[in-house]
Amino acid sequence: MEARFRVLNRAAGIKTSSHAGRRSFSSRLLKSGVSLEQLAILLGHQDTEVTSAYIQVERKTLRSMYEHAL
């Protein structure tokens, strides 16, 4: 999959790493409601600790979660 992303990025003229794409992919899925466990499976990780390294949570999302919990 990584090789395919590399080819697609090059063809589109996008200068980025496959890890940047994985981070965006992970963050968007998590924001849409996919659980960390499901995300780990999609990324091929056996441990959610590895998956959490790919996640970028926006402050706005955290604030919304905090306010919802109150």
Rank of each mutant, 00 (worst) to 15 (best):
M1E: 10
M1T: 15
A3E: 13
R4G: 06
R4Q: 13
F5S: 06
F5V: 06
F5C: 07
V7F: 09
V7L: 10
L8S: 08
L8M: 13
L8H: 08
N9R: 10
N9F: 14
R10I: 08
R10K: 13
A11M: 12
A11Y: 04
A11K: 12
A11W: 08
A11G: 03
A12N: 09
A12V: 04
G13K: 03
G13A: 10
G13S: 08
G13V: 04
I14W: 10
K15Y: 11
K15R: 12
S17Q: 05
S18G: 09
S18A: 13
S18M: 05
H19I: 15
A20C: 08
A20H: 07
A20P: 01
G21M: 07
G21D: 06
R22K: 15
R23D: 02
S24E: 09
S26Q: 02
S27L: 01
S27K: 03
S27P: 00
S27M: 01
S27C: 06
R28H: 08
L29D: 02
L29R: 08
L30T: 01
L30K: 04
S32Q: 10
S32H: 06
S32Y: 02
S32G: 05
G33Q: 01
G33H: 00
G33Y: 00
G33S: 02
V34E: 01
V34D: 00
S35H: 01
S35A: 05
L36G: 00
L36I: 02
L36C: 02
L36N: 00
E37P: 01
E37L: 02
Q38T: 05
Q38D: 10
L39K: 00
A40R: 00
A40H: 00
A40Q: 00
I41M: 09
I41F: 13
I41Q: 12
I41A: 14
L42P: 02
L42M: 11
L42W: 05
L42I: 11
L43A: 12
Q46V: 08
Q46G: 15
D47Y: 01
D47S: 10
T48D: 04
E49T: 14
E49W: 03
E49S: 12
V50F: 05
V50M: 05
T51D: 01
A53C: 06
A53L: 05
Y54L: 09
E58H: 10
E58C: 04
R59E: 10
R59H: 09
K60E: 15
K60L: 08
K60T: 15
T61Q: 13
R63V: 14
S64C: 06
S64K: 09
S64F: 06
S64W: 04
M65R: 11
M65N: 13
M65H: 13
M65I: 14
M65W: 15
M65S: 14
E67M: 11
E67T: 11
E67Q: 14
H68F: 09
H68D: 09
H68S: 12
H68M: 07
H68E: 10
A69T: 14
A69I: 09
A69Y: 15
